[in-house]
Write a protein that binds this DNA or RNA. Sequence first.
DNA 1: ATGGCCTAGTAACTAGGA
Length: 264
Amino acid sequence: MKKLRIATFNINGIRARLPNLLEWLEREKPDIACLQELKAADKDFPAAELESVGYGAIWHGQASWNGVAILARDAQPLESRRGLPGGDDDSHSRYLEAAVHGVLVGCLYLPNGNPQPGPKFDYKLAWFERLIQYAQGLQASDHPVVLAGDYNVVPTDMDIYNPRSWLKDALLQPESRACYQRLLDQGWTDSLRHLYPDERIYTFWDYFRQHWQKNSGLRIDHLLLNPVASAYLSEAGVDAWVRNQPHPSDHAPTWIRLASRKRR
DNA sequence: ATGGCCTAGTAACTAGGA
């Protein structure tokens, strides 16, 4: 496998954020980028603009909300799945999967689940159950698999500046955390936490109360690796400078590097 | 305990986000 930089970025509106997205792609040059919250219908996806900076793409759009895409530098992702299994009555565009650059990449946007308790939280947990069931097969694949996206889960209290004002939030509920842990227990590696077991790392800073300026963040964007992929994990990080740009998304791109030099 | 901010959609507001 050649060296690969794989990123996930909740873009919070791809049309409103297109200049930010293009600048980030040109500066960081990820080989693969998973995007969430396109908030755009399929016909409004800016495929030509992405093509002009060297990225092929597939996308699963939706007007107003949700929407996911997979971008590939100098390549065209080969779509392998659109939507999780068992979602016949699920109209949300939240999962897209492709083979690209020798890796199978699942791009996911897990439901937020607020307010909880309530039907939205029930939907979050039901969606999570479908993901857990489907991920079991991916985990066991002989090929490298990356499950990247906005999981809308703060895994532990170490992944948030201060849990106090978020205790009732769906992102911190024991049920949400238990689902995430069950996913890890299948044999997935949480890339950033694996490489930085003791560090405060955030990927999201809400727009309120100057949380970015105060670095009051949450770690909710995750890149999970199956055992084949985790053998290649060499670096990980957050492109926090993107959060500091004018008119930013409330998330920052989060990335890993896979390279053959650190085989275990 | 609430709202603070932001995007999209339809036309001064609402819904949804996290």
